[in-house]
């Protein structure tokens, strides 16, 4: 018998499932926010017509793809297919993805902790990060979101805060 043992690396089904569900949820929420929130809508309007970005985890973990189709922002599932992906955000491992998607580390913090590999043109990537920040503000209670973003927005009207949140949640859950 060899003194060296070969060991097959294990699986992390629970974390993977959590990350998968959250990416699915976040994907639908981005689609919803783009319909409800003017600022996110404007960010998307400034991006190219076929703009596509993905957020996933390495090496072959869960992934979500968002793309613009005929001016509308759509959650495209987990595979970009033949579309050109303008910005690819890759989280280094499913554990790192768990840290981010369980809001222990915000996008900026995760970036400064080298958890993410960003591929694509910088201006587009920055737009994506701004969009993700706003989506987090809609989805999360203030106490959690203020940890996840650098500066929790102050000037939002009651309408944007409350109406927006209801709109985002309804549309996310219904997938419209």
């Amino acid at each position: 018998m060899s003194i060296v043992k070969d060991i097959q690396s294990g699986r992390k089904p629970l974390k993977r499932a959590y990350v998968g569900i959250f990416l699915w949820f976040t994907g639908r929420a981005i689609q919803a926010t783009a319909r409800v929130d003017q600022e996110v809508k404007k960010e998307f309007d400034n991006l190219p017509d076929d703009f596509t970005f993905s957020l996933g985890c390495l090496p072959d973990g869960p992934c979500m793809v968002i793309g613009k189709e005929k001016g509308k922002v759509k959650y495209l599932g987990s595979n970009p297919g033949k579309r050109h992906v303008h910005v690819r955000l890759a989280i280094k491992s499913v554990d790192a993805a768990f840290l981010i998607l369980s809001f222990q580390e915000g996008t900026a913090v995760a970036t400064t902790r080298n958890r993410l590999i960003t591929d694509g043109e910088v201006p587009y990537a920055l737009a994506v990060i701004r969009i993700l920040d706003i989506v987090e503000v809609y989805l999360l209670p203030k106490i959690i979101a203020s940890l996840a973003v650098k500066r929790y927005p102050k000037g939002w009207s009651i309408g944007r805060k409350l109406g927006g949140r209801i709109g985002v949640y309804t549309r996310t859950l219904l997938g419209i």
Binding site: I3, V4, K5, D6, I7, Q8, S9, G10, R11, K12, K15, R16, P59, D60, G61, S93, V94, D95
Partner: peptide, 30 residues
Amino acid sequence: LLDAFGDSGMTLGLFDGVTTTANPDLIEHL
């Protein structure tokens, strides 16, 4: 350490018998 590779799909070799008297025979074998 092994768990950290979970979900990576990699196969790892493991030799866990280094002693204070590790010698060139061991190195040649490894």
